[in-house]
Design a protein around this nucleic acid. Structure first.
Length: 615
RNA sequence: GGCUCCGUAGCUUAAUGGAUAGAGCAUCUGACUACGGAUCAGAAGGUUAGAGGUUCGAGUCCUCUCGGAGUCACCA
C-alpha cells in the first residue's frame, strides 16, 4: 500500500523542518488542508507551527519549506506563500495519473482490511408494535455506519437485539386472547406487526377505561381523598397514580402479570401464543426492513439474554468493582467519575437492565471476538451507556476500549414528541408509502417516464429523499420531521445527487452509442476550474470515508456526495462534452464523468441510497 | 438541584484550532435554439446566545451567565 499524497506531504514537511531548522516534528501533526477556492493551489500546508522553530517570518519559512517540497516531491509543480499558508499546486501529470487510477480501481475509496472487527447493533425493536419514525432514523444510521465501517477496512457484524419478552408483549397477547376471536394476519389481511400492535393499543384502551371507571368508584374516590396532596387536582393525582393502580388494583394488570409469570415458568400454552404472535411480528418486520433496504447478520433475542450477567456480578464482586448491601442487592459505585451508585442485582437475586447488557456484551465478544462494538441508540440513553462502558472498563473486559455509543437525537414532529396515546406515532411502513407517493406526485409533473419505470423510480427517489434528509445532519442533532420537507427534490437533497448520476449515465450511454474513443484523454492537461474542482473532490473521497468511519458519522459522507454532485452540475453547465474543441477534451470529460458517477454510486450506496436509471 | 448535550442568516444546517464563517430552503434578479432546467449564475440575508480568558490565530478549547433538551428507577 503506497502512501497517499497527503501522507507524502506530511512526511516531507517534517523532513524539511528537520533539515532546515534542526527540529523534529511528528509527520502526523503536520496540517495539510485542501486549498480554499479563491487561492491558487491544491493543498495548503499550515506553516505557523514551524515559525517559532525556524525563528523566521512566516512567509520566509513558508518559502523555504515550499522550495524543499518542490525539489523533493515530483508531483508538485508550483507553490506560493500567503501569510503562514503554503499553497501547493500538483502537476497535471499527477492529476491525470490519479484519474486513471480511479477508473482502473473500480473500488476506489475502499480500504484494505485493517484487522479490526466491529459489531454494530441497531434497530432494537420491541415486538409489541410496528416500527416507527424513530426506528427509521436508527436503521438508516446503523446501516450506513456499518457500510462505511466495512468500506473503511473493518470486518462488520450487523446485529439486532430483539426485545421479545416482558410486560409489553404480554399486553398484546392478553388482549388478543380475550378479544381477538382467533384473528390472524391471514384472516384479517393485516400485516403481522401491525396486528399485534393493534392489540397492544386495544389493551391500553381497555385499561384506560377500567381506570376511569375505577377512579369514580368508592374505592378510587376514597383513595384520592386520603392520598392526594393539598394543591393537587383529581386529574393530576390519578395521572401520577396510574402505575401504582395498574400494579395494585387493576384486574387487567393482574392478568398481565399472571401471564408474564406463566411465561417465565415456561407454561406451554403461553409460550405457544408468544411464539405465534412474535412470529407474526417478525414477518412484518422483515418486510419493513426490506423496504428500507437494511439487513442483519445476527439476531439476539432478549428472551435468551435477559438472565445473563449474573456471572459478571460474581466476577465484579471478586474484583472489588461491585459491593453487596445488607439486603443482598449488589451495587457499583461510580461517584468518583461523577456518576451515581447503580444497582446491578436486586435483593431477590434478579437482574436489571444493565446486568443484561453487561452479560450480552460479554456474550457477543465470545461469539464474534469483535474488538469494537457500536450501539446505535437514541440519546435518552446516554447516561446508561456511559455507566455500562465504565463498568465494563473496570471489569477489565478486553473489548472495553472499543465500545462506542452512536447516540442520535430523537425525531420529533412539528407538534412535539410522538405519543402512542395521542396517536401521533408515524409508522415506518406508512412513511415509506407516503414518501414514494409524494415523489410520484412530483415526478409526473416533470418526468416523461412510462408507468412501470415511474413506479420504480419514485420508490428510489422518495426513499432517496427521505434517507438523505435523515442522514445528512449530524446524528446527535435532534430533528424535527416534516414529511413534505423530507421529500424535497431541489437543493441539498438525495434527488439532486441522484439527478447528477442520471445525467452522467445518459452522457456515458451516448458516448457508448457513438463509440467515442477515450484514449486521447491523457493528452488533456489544461484543466478548466470546474474540472479541477471535480478532480480535487474525487481525491478527497477516501479521506472522507475514513473520517466518517472514525467518527461513526455518516453525515460526512452525505455532505461529501452533495458537494461532488454540486461540482458536477456546475461542470455540466460550464463545460461542453460532446461539442468539445478537441477529441482529447471530449475523452477526458467523459472519463471524468465516469469517475464521478462511480464515486457517487459508491458513496450513495454506502448510505443505502439507490440511483434510478432514469428519472 | 447534580451530570451530559445543544444554541451559527427568517427556516434547515456545514466548518481535524487556520485565510473573507460555507451551503440549501424561502425572497428578488438573471441563464446558452445546447450533453436532461429536479440544473446553473447573481443579489440580499451573520456581533456564530452573551461576557471574560488561553493562543500567532477561537464558531471550535477553558470559566461564568442566559436560553433549550435529555437524564439522575431494585423500568427497559
Amino acid at each position: 500500500m503506497h502512501m497517499t499524497i497527503l501522507e507524502t506531504l506530511q512526511n516531507a514537511v517534517a523532513q524539511a523542518v528537520e533539515q532546515l531548522y534542526g527540529e523534529r516534528v511528528e509527520a502526523s501533526s503536520v496540517q495539510v488542508n485542501a486549498t480554499p477556492a479563491d487561492f491558487t493551489g491544491d493543498y495548503t500546508v499550515v506553516i505557523f507551527p514551524y515559525v517559532r522553530l525556524a525563528r523566521k517570518a512566516p512567509d520566509v519559512a513558508g518559502a523555504e519549506i515550499g522550495a524543499f517540497l518542490e525539489k523533493n516531491i515530483p508531483g508538485i509543480q508550483a507553490f506560493n506563500v500567503i501569510k503562514g499558508f503554503l499553497n501547493l499546486e500538483l502537476s497535471s501529470a499527477y492529476w491525470q495519473a490519479f484519474l486513471q487510477s480511479v477508473l482502473t480501481d473500480g473500488q476506489y475509496g475502499r480500504q484494505p482490511r485493517n484487522g479490526h472487527k466491529v459489531m454494530v447493533e441497531y434497530s432494537s425493536p420491541n415486538t409489541n408494535k410496528p416500527l416507527h419514525l424513530g426506528h427509521v432514523r436508527n436503521c438508516l444510521l446503523g446501516w450506513s455506519s456499518s457500510q462505511i465501517l466495512d468500506a473503511a477496512g473493518y470486518d462488520v457484524v450487523r446485529a439486532q437485539i430483539v426485545n421479545d419478552r416482558g410486560v409489553a408483549i404480554c399486553k398484546s397477547m392478553l388482549a388478543w386472547q380475550k378479544f381477538g376471536n382467533g384473528q390472524t394476519p391471514e384472516s384479517s389481511g393485516i400485516k403481522g406487526d401491525h396486528l399485534v400492535g393493534d392489540y397492544y393499543v386495544l389493551f391500553e384502551n381497555k385499561s384506560r377505561t377500567e381506570y376511569e371507571v375505577w377512579q369514580q368508584s368508592t374505592e378510587g374516590q376514597a383513595l384520592f381523598a386520603e392520598k392526594h396532596k393539598p394543591e393537587q387536582s383529581e386529574k393530576d393525582f390519578f395521572k401520577d397514580y396510574k402505575n401504582k393502580w395498574f400494579n395494585d388494583y387493576s384486574a387487567l394488570g393482574a392478568e398481565v402479570r399472571d401471564m408474564l409469570l406463566k411465561w417465565e415458568a415456561g407454561d406451554a400454552d403461553t409460550l405457544a401464543l408468544w411464539r405465534q404472535m412474535n412470529g407474526w411480528v417478525y414477518e412484518g418486520f422483515e418486510k419493513t426492513y426490506a423496504s428500507l433496504g437494511v439487513a442483519f447478520d445476527k439476531l439476539y433475542y432478549e428472551s435468551d439474554t435477559y438472565l445473563l450477567g449474573k456471572d459478571i456480578v460474581d466476577d465484579g464482586l471478586a474484583k472489588g468493582v461491585f459491593f453487596r448491601k445488607d439486603d443482598g442487592s449488589v451495587w457499583v459505585d461510580l461517584s468518583d467519575v461523577g456518576y451515581d451508585q447503580k444497582v446491578v442485582l436486586r435483593a431477590d437475586g434478579t437482574s436489571v437492565y444493565i446486568t443484561q447488557d453487561l452479560g450480552t456484551a460479554r456474550m457477543r465478544y465470545h461469539d464474534f471476538h469483535c474488538d469494537r462494538m457500536v450501539y446505535v441508540v437514541a440519546d435518552e440513553q446516554n447516561y446508561h451507556f456511559a455507566v455500562l462502558f465504565e463498568v465494563l472498563k473496570r471489569l477489565g473486559e478486553p473489548y472495553a476500549a472499543g465500545l462506542h455509543h452512536l447516540s442520535y437525537g430523537l425525531v420529533e414532529l412539528p407538534t412535539g414528541r410522538m405519543k402512542t396515546r395521542e396517536g401521533t406515532v408515524v409508522d415506518a411502513d406508512d412513511l415509506v408509502t407516503e414518501v414514494t407517493a409524494l415523489a410520484r406526485e412530483q415526478m409526473v409533473q416533470v418526468s416523461d417516464l412510462q408507468p412501470e419505470e415511474l413506479e420504480e423510480a419514485s420508490r428510489k427517489i422518495g426513499l432517496g429523499a427521505l434517507k438523505f434528509f435523515m442522514i445528512k445532519v449530524n446524528p446527535k442533532r435532534k430533528m424535527i420531521f416534516n414529511p413534505e420537507e423530507s421529500v424535497d427534490l431541489q437543493g441539498q437533497t438525495g434527488p439532486y445527487i441522484q439527478y447528477s448520476c442520471v445525467r452522467i449515465n445518459s452522457v456515458l450511454q451516448r458516448a457508448e452509442k457513438e463509440a467515442v474513443d477515450l484514449s486521447p484523454a491523457t493528452e488533456y492537461l489544461d484543466y478548466q476550474p470546474a474540472e479541477k474542482e471535480l478532480l480535487k473532490a474525487l481525491h478527497a473521497y477516501p479521506g472522507v470515508l475514513l473520517t466518517a468511519a472514525a467518527e461513526f458519522d455518516p453525515s460526512h459522507l452525505a455532505n461529501f456526495c452533495y458537494e461532488l454532485a454540486k461540482n458536477y452540475h456546475r461542470f455540466w453547465h460550464d463545460v461542453t462534452i460532446f461539442n468539445a474543441a478537441a477529441p482529447a477534451d471530449k475523452a477526458f470529460r467523459l472519463q471524468l464523468s465516469r469517475a464521478v458517477g462511480q464515486v457517487l454510486q459508491s458513496g450513495m450506496g454506502l448510505l443505502g441510497i439507490e440511483i434510478p436509471a432514469r428519472m
